[in-house]
Design a protein around this nucleic acid. Structure first.
Lengths: 339, 339
DNA sequence: CTGAAAGCGCTTACAG
DNA sequence: CTGAAAGCGCTTACAG
């Protein structure tokens, strides 16, 4: 079988407690003892059994990240940032894909695998504000991401949806654009990314004294590129005129750009476009896509920090916190000011 | 504390062994007993402690997937497929990002976290063929992915690099293109994606009787979009003429397309382009990108199958196997036949 | 600063 | 078909 602490202890001539102390960096250790144990560890190639540690200590050093889908670049990049933040703290990450499905999300929050993780980063998509009470019963330390549930029973780390979309809209209006499309609305949604972003759009219009025009509100079925393309086809077919597009995600903006370009619309000459998310790809499209950087890296870092605190102190020991990352506008070719 | 088997056993009036039998679907159980135990499990909300199970049985139900980087769409989509395949078998996946760094890959293969996983899917990037012997000492069941190491000490699941690139090249030549660029070569590489794909390109030329022209071999520093863009800039600056591009990845093809479009080159009228990987995005660009579907879903499925067999039977119990997934050409606008 | 003992919650043999 | 016992490899209290 594999090398155990006993083997190391025997070789070093100490008790297993001392080996444990060395591994866990206990402070009161004679340098000489520490060295001898370390030598034995190296000589035997000892690696601690994390299942045993997990069983005894109640900590596995693993957290899970529940996201809808890695095929979505936004979530792939979020996962990347979360893994880097976790890695810096010695934590491993199990990614669970929910497809944004309500039942699947609930299963992931309470299923057998939860006994394997110290905490959960839950990017809420299937559940809604009214479901917040369902989270009360979850004993695993948890931090919420996303825009579906505010004021839940635990920490929430998210972005400034309304403010940043307001800023994006004001930015296009400030360029002299007068007919700006809100691209990516979800009918009837108030909470949720689309609802909050639409509210920011309206605020910007109001502040600039530009009348709200229902015809410029474009619904997009979801967050996939194809859905953006389809919505833009519909918008163009409706005959409405516009000279700016504030898209509620980069991916749907890219789908829309393709349709506009095929229709002979020049970007930014005829229509200025700004997206949302600042995914890598936006720096390489033709034209490059202006966008909102919502502070994804900061979100990942703070979420892991919060989760770690909650793991250390107990899931309910800390009152729920809310954190909004800083955003900023990234200006690129799709909204370049005309000469 | 959490509910344990003892609590369930007490409530159901059986021993913990019987509870264990129910959980593990042991076949010889009186239906009546099974029902009573199941009722107790439900009533108490019992969930097995996976650390305890892992410690006793030596299995955690977790596998790790070592990949360079989730920001790369190819690997994000591979990870997605692997997680689906694993999920279907009740396995969880820990993703580890290596950045393709040799030392980091070695650490991930032997580090403390390996005691937490039953097996490793290792997408080799930092190690090379000459390093295959380093894998001999790894006791964790492992399946290799990628094109760096063939004939290692364990299973290898991969794609038909040469054959598929040969097919892509023949496809463009068959359209009447005569000056086809091999885009994405790595100087001096023989093994590895770029080397194998270049070999396929040369075979196609030879078969078609088209002379090999060193000027049409374009080196690309890596697999990022920016590197594709830079390489195409260099190619255009060199003044060489060409009417087709066989790119060794979709991502660098997209970077190159952008540069060509800015230079006023029409695709496919002036230059036909075909990529490699069939990432989602290729269906939505302008023009949509023809590509090679290398059989990613099949690779993920077979790799998880192989790994599971190796976990069940012992890391060294099965002689190394090699599996090549089926590929096919996906024809889209970037290589549409001219009217 | 280090040690001896107990026990985390399961599964594994083994018995009946 | 079910049970009683042992033990997986650690960390936690506690003692000295």
């Amino acid at each position: 079988m594999a090398v155990t602490m006993h083997d190391v202890a025997n070789l070093a001539g100490v008790s297993i407690k001392t080996v444990s102390n060395v591994i866990n960096n206990y402070q009161y250790l004679k340098p000489e003892t520490k060295r001898r144990v370390q030598d034995a560890i190296d000589a035997l190639g000892y690696r601690p059994n994390l299942s045993a540690r997990g069983l005894r200590s109640g900590r596995t050093g693993v957290i899970s990240l529940i996201i809808p889908d890695l095929r979505n670049a936004y979530f792939a990049e979020l996962a990347d940032e979360v893994m880097r933040a976790a890695d810096a703290k010695g934590l491993s990450v199990i990614i669970e894909q929910s497809s944004g499905d309500r039942e699947r999300e609930l299963n992931l929050l309470t299923g057998p695998r939860t006994s394997m993780v110290d905490g959960i980063l839950y990017s809420v998509l299937g559940l809604e504000e009214d479901d917040a009470h369902l989270l009360d019963r979850i004993e695993t330390p948890m931090v919420l991401l996303g825009e579906r549930i505010f004021h839940g029973p635990t920490d929430h780390v998210t972005m400034r949806n309304s403010e940043s979309t307001k800023a994006a809209t004001s930015y296009l209006l400030g360029q002299g654009r007068t007919r700006v499309v809100a691209f990516g609305a979800h009918r009837g949604e108030v909470i949720g990314s689309a609802g909050l972003r639409l509210a920011g759009y309206r605020e910007a219009l109001a502040e600039a004294g530009v009348p709200y025009d229902e015809a410029l509100i474009s619904e997009v079925g979801g967050w996939y590129r194809l859905e953006g393309a389809q919505a833009m086809q519909k918008l163009l077919a409706s005959g409405v005129t516009f000279d700016g597009v504030v898209a509620f995600s980069d991916v749907i903006a890219l789908g829309a750009m393709r349709v506009m370009q095929e229709a002979g619309i020049r970007i930014p000459e005829d229509v200025a476009v700004i997206g949302f998310d600042d995914i890598d790809e936006t720096r390489y499209t033709l034209p490059t896509l202006s966008t909102i950087d919502p502070g994804r890296a900061e979100i990942a870092r703070v979420a892991v920090d919060y989760l770690q605190e909650r793991i250390a102190q107990g899931a309910r020991a800390i009152p729920p916190r809310e954190y909004f990352a800083d955003f900023h506008i990234v200006e690129r070719e799709s909204s370049a000011v005309l000469a």
